[in-house]
Write a protein that binds this DNA or RNA. Structure first.
Lengths: 253, 253
DNA sequence: TTACAATTGTGTACTTAATACACTATGAAA
DNA sequence: TTTCATAGTGTATTAAGTACACAATTGTAA
């Protein structure tokens, strides 16, 4: 939470630089040790967590705003981002209103107004991310998707909606390049799909289907040193992957 | 185009009532005589057409804003609406800037600022619509999807994006209830799918597939009086239709 | 060193969905 | 009554999805 002085400074600065009434919220998905993770922030004085977010500069494309915001939180400079929905309930910013009400007159307080938030989800490589807290938070950290904490505002609704969008995307686009390391095994990729979908898949059928997409290359050398039978290593065939991204998988109609 | 006096009044009013920097653009699809149609507006002094749109009241949910805007243009009060994407290029409102620049000082001119537009598409029954021009237009009319005129701003991009979203929806949700009359023949419904998709489908396979969804009821009586063999009439089974809307069709994964 | 547990790799039969394609039926108009 | 346009229906083939079982490898514990 900001002090009065900080709020004054932040508000002045924001009014000068950002488009009013618009915010951006990002759901950053990462994958590590067989677990789907989401990047969250937390202040010390509040129990609840919130999604990385921010505002749009006056002359900035909204997509670039999302990239900029995530660069600040993750240190990454190439980020796979997808706009998925707008959250425009007039009451959704009540939290900030309550928190900072009285500290400053309404006209001077950036947070007093209504914000319509554009939701983006991002898929990132867990190991490439260095979480950086923002000005309001002391903590920026990964949380397991199946052990999410209580969230501020409507952020629970937002990340659930992002997950729905991601699940839908799984049906007509390849996924994984942005979430997996360069080389990975088939069971690891399967685990990614399973955590996104929240259900188990059959190993044999998964392998046939994913190979059928033609977006994987199998390396000659299996991964050694594991405790069990050495699995093959795969990597994405970027040409086919990119092609599948634009073309989509199954026609449907 | 507004006169200076009108611009002054409009700007004052808008500033008082609407959320700044946010607009809504709607792509209204209708279906008539085997043609997919889009509802468009045009001023007399401009050659280019534009999409029905408007702004969000200060305490209004964005979805309700879209409904309100479309009620004004179509007279309908139940409208199937779907948010599909946000258009946030900082240059996208240049048109209005140019048009009204100099008429009023920037701070007083509602249209001088940047607008981030939320795109909705609507599916409506052609016969239920009574097109009403808005304050800026003299004409509100249906245009054939395959004979669209030149559009203002980025509105061509917007309706194309809406069509993409609609095509995608075809793959996992039923479509037609909002576009077809209560009773219709199988060839008519097929024509709807064909115009949305922009390609021909096989009659026999179409029928099998659509019946397989279990959302149609066939009436006993065929339609009489046509010039050829009397076709059966179908209507949507609303219980199954609603169910399919929420459940979706094919799992994919 | 050998048996065991955990994990990986692979194949086959069955069912369901998608595609391709052709004939019969009806009703109006010539 | 013949012809033309349109509607209704079925079947064979191919592709995709699902269900399921056994053999191979590697480290660990007996």
């Amino acid at each position: 939470m900001l002090s009065k002085q900080q709020l004054i400074e932040y508000s002045e600065d924001a009014r000068k630089n950002y488009v009013n009434h618009i915010s951006i919220d990002c759901v950053v998905f990462g994958f590590h040790e067989g677990q789907m993770k989401v990047l969250l922030l937390k202040t010390n004085d509040e129990e609840k967590w919130y999604l990385p977010g921010g505002f749009v500069l006056k002359e900035e494309h909204i997509d670039n705003a999302a990239v900029r915001i995530l660069q600040e939180r993750t240190g990454l400079d190439k980020i796979f981002l997808q706009q998925f929905r707008v959250f425009g309930d007039p009451d959704r910013s009540k939290f900030h209103n309550d928190m900072y009400v009285g500290m400053l007159p309404k006209e001077e307080n950036w947070f007093s107004g209504r914000f319509i938030s554009i939701g983006y989800y991002a898929l990132v490589d867990f190991f490439d991310v260095t979480p950086h807290p923002d000005q309001f938070s002391e903590l920026c950290a990964w949380r397991d998707l199946d052990d999410m904490p209580e969230m501020q505002l409507d952020h629970e609704k937002i990340y659930k909606s992002a997950l729905d969008a991601l699940r839908l995307q799984l049906n007509y686009q390849p996924i994984g390049y942005n979430l997996m390391p360069r080389e990975f095994t088939m069971p690891e990729l399967q685990k990614l799909y399973e955590t996104i979908l929240g259900k188990k898949l059959d190993r044999r059928n998964f392998q046939r289907r994913i190979l059928g997409f033609g977006i994987l290359n199998r390396s000659e050398e299996p991964r050694k040193g594991g405790a069990h039978k050495a699995p093959y290593l795969y990597s994405f065939d970027m040409e086919n992957y990119q092609n599948a991204l634009t073309e989509g998988f199954k026609g449907g109609w």
